[in-house]
């Protein structure tokens, strides 16, 4: 009988299944954050005397376009890695990251538009909710971009790995990282689409 402790002697598949579930449950937790905050917004909106009426800045449409295209880029990157088109996968990841940065910039443009409408952060609470929700969502995007940067740097460093990419073989660990990151990225982008639609129907 083997008398040694083998704490990591767990199949990779089992480990990945468990870690994938961690991500899905984390998504449920993040969803709760936005669900309760948007519920608070609806409760506040019912107090019509203190709720300003204004149209949603149109630049948020651009944000939505960036979010969706960035997600498509991630999907493409993951697909390419699986098909061992490593260079294309890296480029797709890089472009997705740029689209993520463009998304954040468009959010700032949205804030500027709100200010131009006379709705600074400290103005009417109707506007303040947009700032708060967009900033909270933006924090999740920044988290994703940091993870993307690490993944991209790793992919670049490993491009000539003689055991894997350099020999034309995929690396299960890196594929899994990419899968997790892709799922997260799709999730935060879907979250933005939800916020956009929520704003669209509550601010017209």
């Amino acid at each position: 009988m083997n008398n040694t402790y083998q704490s990591n002697l767990v199949s990779v598949k089992e480990k990945h299944t468990a870690q994938r579930l961690i991500l899905y449950i984390a998504m449920a937790s993040i969803t709760m954050f936005f669900a309760v905050t948007t519920s608070a917004l609806l409760v506040k909106k019912a107090d019509v005397l203190n709720w300003a009426q204004f149209p949603l800045p149109s630049v948020f449409i651009l944000s939505t376009v960036f979010a969706v295209t960035s997600s498509v880029g991630f999907f493409f990157s993951y697909k390419c890695y699986k098909e061992q088109k490593f260079s294309t996968s890296r480029w797709a990841l890089f472009v997705s990251g740029l689209l993520g940065v463009a998304f954040l910039l468009s959010q700032f443009m949205g804030f500027e538009s709100l200010k131009a409408m006379g709705l600074p952060l400290t103005g009417n609470v109707a506007g303040s909710f947009i700032y708060f929700l967009a900033i909270a969502h933006g924090a999740h995007i920044i988290g994703g971009l940091l993870a993307l940067t690490v993944t991209l740097v790793n992919a670049y460093v490993a491009r000539n790995d003689v055991h894997f990419e350099g020999a034309g073989n995929l690396n299960i660990k890196r594929l899994f990282s990419l899968e997790i990151l892709t799922s997260y990225w799709h999730f935060v982008n879907v979250l933005w689409v939800y916020l956009f639609l929520f704003f669209y129907f509550n601010y017209q």
Partner: peptide, 12 residues
Amino acid sequence: SEVTAHHDSAHA
């Protein structure tokens, strides 16, 4: 090329 998953053995 053939897909080789070096870490996908039963145990890591």
